[in-house]
Design a protein around this nucleic acid. Structure first.
Lengths: 237, 237
DNA sequence: AACTAGACGTGTACACCGTATTCTTCTTGA
DNA sequence: TCAAGAAGAATACGGTGTACACGTCTAGTT
């Protein structure tokens, strides 16, 4: 046996053994990192700052997380722990999927920094719990597991795409410290010049005709309903 | 007048004036950065490495891009320039939107690093061209601009959500240098332990019953068709 | 009861990052 | 002719992730 690869982070969450009593554990570290990201954005999460927030030293964290990527994976799963899945599945697939989608969107609003994550599937406890709940919503419809996954994933992939775009601009404003007015002041002159050239009729219609500040909750519900209509057509087939 | 805010990058693409002849311009810088990202991933794109690739110095780039965020915006728009929009709109909204979605997915496969971007709307020439083409696809259906945007955005937001998940795992593998076998070797034992505990019936069904290596092209088309079915229901209403 | 293997946290160090500042060199408009 | 100012280079600063060596504390073994 040469080199066992380093096991996945979820298999490394060991308990107290030999040695000094712990002053740190991965849960406290994760919580500190999440708090930092919530307060100052994901860019503010550095091993040094997390350590400082815990009155510890940067390298001490590496006893518990292995690498910064591990920490971000822990952060992501921790946030998924805030999903409210009570009463799911209820038996009505459409309402259940809509609830899941709204919950996903809700935690993204609570922690906008997760929108930038790759969202690769992990084996974290909260993520697996979420997948279980999601597939349970589309069980009993006479579909095989692949078709069930199609339904669930389509709804959730749309949701994440929506949220990513929705929060992208907001996060950018927070990151650069510019509010929307400042953004418009910056963008306006160039936008005006573009429109004057007259080559962009639809961009022009967007500026002139589109609702100015649409309620994103309403927009989300409208588009989600369309997606769910598409799933319904598949189920009734 | 105190401090004009620095204008948006697209308004700063000046031409030669007084001073030494340029050896750099934003197009060459962008191309070098994109090539670097394609070859070694987005993390390899640093001002120093881009400069080195151009036999220049890091600070020379700042004559042309202002900030690294500007450079990434230029990179993103440059990649959108690879979208093939010929013949769009053709008059059939469903085929057109499907083509747009496939094109978006195609450029993501060609440049996987763009999946991690916030995708906030920019005023880059290729992005605006893309929006124009997209809205043209859903024009003439008797819908106002907001409803048109709903149709287009729903299709594209699903697409980006799909692609982001699809490429997340692949990018992670490339970044960590682990192929799928190594990933499974790493993940397998923990996954097996999870399944043995018997609390995750659907995860178990996924492992046992799901198709092992589904063709992602097929999966994408299947889900995209569902989404477009949902849009059709809205249009025919 | 004594010993020791190993876990825990610390300090230092290295290579790298984005970019502010300063400087020399070159071109062009007046 | 000449000054204004743009291009690019050099240097430097404060930040990053983390490798490595170290002293300290404890649980299990002898």
């Amino acid at each position: 046996m040469a080199d066992d690869p380093p096991p996945v982070i979820w298999a490394r969450l060991s308990s107290q053994g030999r040695g000094p009593v712990r002053t740190l554990d991965h849960e406290a570290i994760t919580a500190a990192a999440v708090a930092l990201a919530d307060a100052d954005g994901i860019d503010a999460v550095s091993m040094r700052k997390v350590a400082a927030r815990m009155d510890s030293s940067p390298m001490a964290l590496y006893r518990h997380v292995g690498t910064k990527d591990d920490l971000t994976e822990l952060m992501y799963d921790a946030v998924l722990g805030e999903l409210d899945l009570t009463g799911i599945p209820s038996g009505g697939w459409r309402d259940d999927l809509a609830r899941l989608a709204r919950e996903i969107r809700r935690v993204h609003h609570a922690h906008p920094w997760i929108a930038g994550f790759g969202h690769r599937p992990t084996l974290g406890p909260h993520h697996t719990r979420f997948v279980e709940a999601g597939l349970a919503c589309v069980d009993g419809l006479g579909l095989d597991i692949d078709a069930m996954m199609d339904l669930l994933s389509t709804a959730l992939q749309f949701t994440r795409g929506f949220v990513q775009q929705e929060l992208g601009e907001a996060e950018e404003q927070r990151r650069t410290g510019l509010d929307f007015a400042a953004y418009q002041r910056r963008t306006g002159p160039y936008l005006a010049r573009l429109l004057e050239e007259g080559e962009l009729p639809y961009l022009n219609r967007l500026v002139v005709e589109a609702e100015d500040f649409p309620d994103q909750d309403v927009v989300f519900e409208r588009r989600l309903a369309m997606v769910l209509d598409g799933l319904a057509a598949r189920i009734d087939r």
